[in-house]
Design a protein around this nucleic acid. Structure first.
Lengths: 329, 329
DNA sequence: CACGTAGATGCAAACGGTTTCAGACTGCGG
DNA sequence: CCGCAGTCTGAAACCGTTTGCATCTACGTG
């Protein structure tokens, strides 16, 4: 079927070793023969079998990427970034979706681990101990989570929350609510931490509404609590939930932004299309994917040096139509 | 690092061949030894190296999946379906995103082809000849496209369009417009074909607005043409475009559904969240992904039999708030 | 002219499995 | 006691590469 290195060798009148060298260590072979080999390889459409190569080199040329839920538009964006960067570096990407299930996550990591050089865990929900243990037997990078010395790419949630709070304060809000995401999500904790710091700094009161599924429905479910709490502004764990809030608030006759200001996080595409358009803390999602691949590849190339590295990406508040001057009673 | 078959063999006091058999042809080995081997394998955490196995068996246990654009929510859904089904069948999935670029598509197919047993091409934009040629050297399944005898999974666009037109007719519409997707998309042609048949059958006039990018912006761009055309209803190639239409219509002061009815296709999540909520032709996206994997695996298992197979999935009109009784002048 | 050296190439082993083939062992009938 | 069939098992070849080492050639040098 496909040409093998032996056929190329025979056709070019050299040994397989020479073909191999002509392709991967060009300076070790006579320019004339190299030229001849390359031409034959070209003609036969030869490309080395990566599995066979991986067998001996111990490197597969594959990356693994694990995400909690592709149905949340945040993740496809990250995947796109990973994909693009990996392709540039000539890596292929294995993708797995855990459906927000920590157990499935660990299982998938285990099975994928054997087929890749490195793994990117996007917003992993698994237990710290398990991830830490895995990180000792393979190189992995986390996105949207940080603990221990495991390499990671995260967003500057603290600054993002600071911007959001500053915006609300400028609009005269004095009490704001936080609608949290999954209990197992690191970023929900990190964001809440940032929010606490930011509200405390400006003397704003913060009402914490607890944990909800990180989906549209989660926002819908949280809305009535928010209305009852008497705040004039609400910040949601992500845009999907913020949009859910928006929907339910409208149904309840609470007009946004006159009666209530709503801020999301992520800047997914549809948040610019809602009505009112959603004010949100924008994250460089594709950029995070690319950064994770960068980090992973640099770790793979390091002989056995620093096993730790961290990147923190900036966040930016995008003011749209869902925030306004606080209602004064 | 990881246990090899030889270590298991030594530990269990048998030869590597026996270990191999104990694992993959259980009935060929004495129950007692098999038991012993399995226990040792379990204890050592042994799992066969798939690359090594693939080298000799010629099967990698991997599937490839190529999509035009993960940023369009249609595709993540399909990916999810593929992913889930593949995992059940113990296949790992390579994912690639072509960014709607036919050239990149062909390139990615070529590079992925060598590392997988089969390939799923979702809404491929490439040229028929190239795909046909590729299909001869490997097993592939297309989703959302059909030509020649290449195995495929498609939606029953004709019936979907029929339902949409029937709905519009019942509301009294006499002139409707079609906003097409990419020229290279098979389904845009297929849908238009269905639409032509359906409108002709009921004596409705159809205005074809041409081709637009299959994104929100494409719908925005098409909106003014639609308004100018004087129709009372419009059907868009996909929901993203329909949402773009909705947005621009509102900006232009055209109220939906009083002045204009809008129908999308795909039933992506956000179409139920827009205002007004979008009437759309719902497609079983995850189901399509699963069906494609099913098909692919059955093709792989066939000794060399029928190389062709087709599945057509039903479509269903979902009436929401963006369609209403035709405006009477 | 003998010799050391450097550059280019080939040989063969290795990677971690699977599979063919043949041999060892068992139990059984003659 | 021998032969035979049947069941298990092990040795070895193989998949397609890479790579350490040996070989060979040609060349410059003393």
């Amino acid at each position: 079927m496909r040409a093998t290195i032996r056929e190329v060798a025979r056709e070019a009148g050299v040994s397989p070793s020479t073909v191999s060298r002509a392709l991967s260590m060009p300076e070790m072979v006579n320019p004339a023969t190299r030229e001849r080999v390359l031409r034959v390889a070209q003609r036969l459409g030869y490309a080395p079998n990566r599995a066979a190569r991986g067998l001996i080199t111990g490197r597969t040329g594959n990356l693994g990427l694990i995400v909690p839920d592709l149905a949340n538009p945040f993740f496809p964006s990250v995947v796109k970034g990973v994909q693009a960067k990996a392709r540039e570096a000539d890596y292929a990407v294995f993708l797995a979706d855990t459906d927000e299930d920590p157990a499935a996550e660990i299982g998938l990591i285990r099975v994928l681990a054997k087929q890749v050089d490195g793994l990117i865990l996007c917003s992993p929900r698994g237990h710290e101990d398990e991830i830490r243990e895995l990180s000792e037997s393979m190189t992995l990078v986390m996105v949207n989570r940080r603990f221990g010395s495991i390499p990671s790419v995260v967003f500057d949630n603290v600054d993002g929350m600071r911007q959001a709070v500053a915006h609300l304060q400028a609009l005269g809000h004095q009490r704001a609510a936080w609608v949290g995401g999954p209990r197992t999500s690191w970023s929900t904790r990190d964001r809440l931490r940032g929010l606490r710091a930011a509200t405390a700094a400006v003397g704003m009161e913060l009402v914490v509404a607890g944990h909800f599924p990180p989906q549209f429905e989660g926002g819908v479910a949280a809305a009535d609590l928010i209305i009852a709490s008497g705040v004039t502004a609400v910040i949601a764990y992500n845009d999907l939930m913020a949009l859910g809030l928006l929907g339910r608030l409208r149904d309840r006759g609470v007009s946004v932004p006159q009666d209530m200001s709503v801020i999301g996080i992520d800047d997914i595409q549809m948040s610019s299309m809602s009505s009112p358009a959603l004010t949100t803390v924008s994250l460089g999602k594709e950029q995070a994917g690319r950064a994770a691949v960068d980090l992973l590849i640099s770790l793979l190339q390091q002989p056995e040096g620093v096993r730790s590295a961290r990147r923190e990406l900036p966040t930016q508040l995008l003011v749209r139509a869902s925030t306004g001057v606080a209602r004064t009673n």
